[in-house]
């Protein structure tokens, strides 16, 4: 024992190096999967406060752009007003008015160059934000909340190695999955496309609504390139996200009001 201790003291530099490296790599293990990231809870009030102050200083430079984005979005929403207020279906009188609530939030930090990109938002637990809520930009979905602190929350951007979203091809309702493209880091990939489906450039990919995080039918992106492979039964396609991650200034956090009920139902049926 004493010899061992003497050995470590003698090679203090090297032992400390190994110890610190092992510690770091063990910590790193926590971010290897989406589930582990959720467990870890990335948000903190300290970093949130720092981003908030900095964002307050630099926000003025983007006001013009933000105004234009808001204006465009208002115009688009006005166009959909009529369809929004179609008479309710009288066959289902017990259906709730809406299953989703949109909470506006300001982006106080956003990265796009990393392998794991995150969006920090200025709403947290106190404003009713929870993990696994969807994040929506003016043009399409942008990410999923993975950590909340009292006043801030952190969302995993779609530009993230762990992104895996259940999606649908708009034109023929086929179920597919969307992941991040490691090669073109600003783009995504549509995977698990059945062999008989022929996609063409510009086809829209929307959310499927299967995950309870996003409502069905929200824009994810448009197909950028599609090549049929000869030996695989499931094809892949490049995807250009609808959301412009370079100018993400405000977003909506989507709160699914009947998620608990649905999850409970699923669990109960799963048990039997």
């Amino acid at each position: 024992m004493r010899n061992l201790l003497a050995f470590f003291l003698k090679h203090q530099f090297f032992s400390l190096f190994i110890l610190l490296e092992i510690t770091s790599v063990m910590m790193l293990m926590n971010s290897f999967s989406y589930q582990r990231m959720l467990g870890f809870n990335a948000a903190s009030d300290i970093s949130g406060e720092i981003y908030n102050v900095y964002n307050g200083m630099t926000d003025y430079f983007n006001l013009k752009k933000q105004n234009r984005q808001l204006l465009n979005e208002n115009a688009r929403l006005r166009n959909t007003l009529l369809t929004n207020y179609l008479p309710a279906d009288s066959n289902y009188p017990e259906k709730k008015d809406s299953a989703f609530r949109y909470i506006p939030a300001i982006v106080i930090r956003n990265t796009v160059n990393h392998v794991s990109n995150f969006i920090v938002l200025n709403k947290g637990k106190r404003q009713g934000i929870q993990k696994e809520m969807g994040v929506l930009s003016d043009k399409g979905i942008a990410g999923i909340i993975i950590g909340v602190s009292e006043n801030y929350s952190v969302a995993m951007s779609l530009l993230n190695i762990h992104t895996h979203i259940s999606a649908r091809i708009k034109k023929d309702d086929q179920l597919v999955n969307v992941i991040w493209s490691e090669k073109h880091r600003r783009r995504g990939q549509v995977v698990d496309i059945p062999a008989h489906i022929q996609l063409s450039e510009g086809d829209t990919i929307i959310t499927s609504g299967n995950s309870f995080i996003f409502p069905a039918g929200m824009n994810i992106g448009v197909v950028h390139d599609f090549e049929k492979s000869k030996n695989h039964s499931l094809n892949k396609a490049g995807l250009q996200f609808c959301t412009d991650f370079n100018s993400l200034h405000y977003v909506y956090i989507i709160k699914s009001l009947d998620k608990k009920e649905k999850m409970k139902l699923l669990e109960e049926t799963g048990d039997e």
Binding site: M27, N30, S31, S116
Partner: peptide, 18 residues
């Protein structure tokens, strides 16, 4: 801590300090 990549930079920086 700021980049939400616990341990990634720590491992790399410790290596160059070594």
């Amino acid at each position: 801590f700021f980049e939400n990549t616990m341990g990634l930079h720590a491992a790399a920086v410790v290596f160059i300090a070594f």
